Computed example of a mutant assay.
Amino acid sequence: MKKSALKWLTTVPVAVALAFSLAACGGGTGATSSGKPTNALAGSDQKSLDKYTTKDVTALDKIDTSKLGLITPGTITVGTLSDAPPNIYIDKSGKFTGYDNELLRAMADKLKLKVEFKSTDFSALLSQVANKQFDVGSSSISTTDLRRKTVGFTNGYDFGYMAVVAKKDSAVKGFKDLSAKTRIAVVQGTVQDDYVTNTLKLEPVRFPDYNTAYANLKTGQVDAWVAPSQQATGQVKEGDGTAIVESVVNTQNFTAYAVSPSNQPLIDALNSALDAVIDDGTWAKLTKQWYPDRVTPKDWTPGSKAAKLP
């Protein structure tokens, strides 16, 4: 596989040019090309994550919710996305929903706390959580060593796949077909951005959100989209002329909720609530609802090491 950088297009439509501009000035914790290939997903493999997963959790009745450092007492203020079904999106009624957000609602119920969701771009989310503009970040966030320098994380509540989406008649049939000649869409600041830039050593076309990235694939402005498999599944529809051409567990990593690294009490409380919704069957119910065809790996479980699926 070639590792040289993608040359910028000499002529690009306004939508793509705008995405380039947004990527250039955006924040994020993401991809900056280095001199040699690096493992952008370092710290997101199952063995590494074992050291971050807590042995057990505090009993719910021992948690003082008045001492969680919340922006608004009694309410968890959550930064999330509006366009990434089935995990995080706004439905037709204007409600923030999706697997990640509904699970967080159930966890908040265990703590007898309210939840207020606010929309943001992923490229800004982690820095906003670190600066305490949000109490929590909810966005299927893969936990990596690089991201742990910015935010703290709860125990894992899900695991991640990575996908390549392309036109059905495209020569791109998987990761092996990505090269310097491929216009590769990613959402800025995501693990996919890091992976394409720092591991594959290719220069992707960065977009501010999933809808824009996928729209540019459908219109042929880019050749492929490297995306989280969950979001790819939520975007690709019959009649679009596109397909998920490859979907793999790049690392059997976990996704978690992001919290300011200085707010350990909130991390501990959320870990307790996560175990509670695992123990009472809510996690399994929501997982089946939002991922009806997905099989959970036998050697992976959510929550603390003490959590047991019913």
Rank of each mutant, 00 (worst) to 15 (best):
Lys2Asp: 14
Ser4Trp: 15
Ala5Glu: 15
Leu6Tyr: 15
Lys7Cys: 11
Trp8Phe: 15
Leu9Gly: 07
Val12Thr: 11
Val12Gly: 08
Val12Pro: 00
Phe20Tyr: 13
Ala24Phe: 15
Ala24Trp: 15
Gly30Lys: 05
Gly30Phe: 13
Ala31Val: 05
Ser34Ala: 06
Leu49Ile: 07
Lys51Met: 08
Tyr52Leu: 11
Thr53Lys: 13
Thr54Met: 06
Leu60Ser: 00
Ile63Cys: 02
Leu68Tyr: 04
Ile71Val: 12
Gly74Cys: 08
Ile88Asn: 14
Tyr89Cys: 07
Ile90His: 10
Asp91Trp: 01
Lys92His: 12
Asn101Gly: 00
Asn101Met: 08
Leu103Trp: 07
Leu103Gly: 00
Leu103Ala: 00
Arg105Gln: 06
Arg105Trp: 07
Asp109Phe: 04
Leu111Arg: 02
Lys118Gly: 01
Ser127Lys: 15
Ser127Asp: 10
Ala130Cys: 06
Asn131Val: 01
Arg148Trp: 02
Val165Tyr: 03
Val165Ile: 14
Lys167Met: 05
Phe175Tyr: 15
Lys176Met: 05
Ala180Thr: 10
Ile184Val: 11
Val186Phe: 07
Val187Phe: 03
Val187Pro: 01
Gln188Ser: 07
Val191Thr: 11
Gln192Ala: 09
Val196Met: 09
Val196His: 08
Val196Trp: 08
Thr199Ile: 09
Leu200Thr: 01
Leu202Ile: 02
Arg206Thr: 08
Asp209Ile: 06
Tyr210Cys: 00
Ala213Pro: 01
Lys218Pro: 03
Val222Leu: 11
Val236Cys: 12
Asp240Pro: 05
Gly241Met: 06
Asn250Ala: 05
Ala258His: 03
Pro265Ile: 00
Ala273Gly: 02
Ala276Met: 04
Ile278Ala: 09
Gly281Lys: 09
Arg294Gln: 12
Pro302Val: 02
Ala306Met: 07
Ala306Ile: 03
Ala306Glu: 09
